[in-house]
Structures are given as C-alpha cells and as structure tokens.
Amino acid sequence: MLEFAVVTLASLFAGFVDAIVGGGGLILIPAMFGVFPNAAPATLFGTNKGAAVWGTAWATVQFARRVEMVWSALLPAAAAALAGSALGAWTVTMVPPTGLRKALPFILLAVFVYTLVKKDMGREHRRRFSGRTEAAVASLIGFVIGFYDGFFGPGTGSFFVFLFVRLLGYDFLHASASAKLLNTATNFSALLLFIAKGHIWWHFALVMAVANVVGSLLGTRLALKHGAGFVRVIFMAVVGALILKTGYDALKL
C-alpha cells in the first residue's frame, strides 16, 4: 500500500506539471526507480507511459475546449511524431544514446538561455505560417522530437513547446496546448512497444493513470487561468530542473 501511495502521488504531481508545460517524467520516473530499485528499467518506463498517456490525452481535450488548436497542422504533426517515436525506439535498439546523453545538458542550457534573453518570446500569439507551410513545419517538429522521444526522451514536452514558440510563433499557452497532442502520440507509440514486449505493470499503471488525469485537470485549469506568462515561468523552471538532472546523469557516465 505504501508503494501504491508513493507512485500514485508522484503520478498526480507529474500530471499536474506535464499539463502545464511537460516534464512530468522528471517527477514520476525517479519516484518509480526509488520505490522499485530492483525492477527492470523497461518495465518502469512502460508503466510510466501507461499512466502518462492518459494525462496528456486528457490535457489535450481540456485545452482544445478553450484554446485555438490548428488541427490542419497538428494532426499531420501528431502522425509524424508517432512515426518518429517508433523509429527512435527501433534505433535505440541498434545504437546506444550515450553521446546524446552527454550533449543534452548543453542543448537544454542553450534553450534556457535563449528563452531567458528573449523576454518577449512566446508572450503573444502570432502564427508565422498557415496552410500547408504550417503543417509541414509542425510535422517536421513532430517527427524530429518524436524520434528523440523514442530514442532517449527527457524533456520531450519542453522541446515541443520551445519549437512551437520559436518556429511557429505560438505563445506559450498555445504551444503547450499543441504540444500535448503530439506528446500523446509519442507516449502512445512508446506504450504500444512496451506492451508488445510485456514491460508494463497494469495494476500500478491503471491507478497511476487516474491520478495522472486528476493532476492534468488541475494543471490545465491553472494554465488556462493564468495564461502564457505563467506557462513561460513554469517552462523555465522545468528546463532548469532538466539541466540539473541531465547534467548529473551525464557526469555519472
């Protein structure tokens, strides 16, 4: 019961953070490794995806009711993200992500500094493209970050948000809403792989999924209430935490 309580609370908080700007895995995965230190990592990752996919899907629905979603661009992007995630998952079976793991803290630091310097970036929603061009750029983002998610994964939601802001001209609220759809696709793709390999604890995943959805509901409401400026602050906090976490992991290699 103690194990259930810890991972359920972690899943709720992860859903809360993930709904605002992504990065829920930063909370839930370390919690699961702490509670189950002897479990197979693939099983913990699979169980995490079994919970997280419901939270991101629920956040997508909630955002879609209140925020303009450019479905003509986002649906192709979600399909590209799903394909990229599957390809990334296959690639990691052939090539270990050691080099990327070492480089990731510096990539995240560049994202953090750029966002910090560009104080007005993402505060106003000014779409740079429309029609097929917007769909093509969004699909490229979906495929590249989807591949990254399948290949390695930390910070996927934050990368989606940053690129939607930087390349498509979305504000942080619209970028976060759009990122949820793509993150749902990548989570679903990874989940199918873990299910096929038998790497999921359903008795934990189902309970954690409920908690993740509750956290997602709370996070979504907070983001919608306080707008792009609030999402930007949470984005900076999550990326900062990711820099510390991935930097520590890289030093252990």
Rank of each mutant, 00 (worst) to 15 (best):
M1A: 04
V6P: 00
A10F: 02
L12M: 10
L12R: 01
A19H: 10
I20D: 09
V21I: 15
G23E: 13
G23F: 12
L26A: 08
L28E: 10
L28F: 01
P30N: 06
F33V: 03
N38A: 11
N38I: 00
A40L: 05
M69W: 10
S72F: 02
S72L: 10
L82D: 00
A86V: 13
T91R: 01
M94R: 15
P96N: 07
P97C: 06
P97Y: 04
T98S: 06
P105M: 09
L108V: 11
L109K: 00
F112H: 10
V117M: 15
V117I: 15
K118Y: 06
E124P: 00
T133C: 08
A136Q: 04
D149R: 11
P154M: 12
P154T: 12
T156D: 10
T156R: 11
F160T: 07
L163K: 01
V165M: 03
V165R: 01
R166E: 11
S176D: 07
A179Y: 14
N187R: 11
S189E: 08
A190E: 05
L191P: 07
L193P: 00
I195T: 04
I195M: 14
A196T: 01
A209D: 06
L217N: 00
G219R: 03
L222A: 15
A223K: 07
A237V: 14
V239C: 09
L242C: 11
L244M: 13
K245E: 05
D249C: 06
A250R: 02
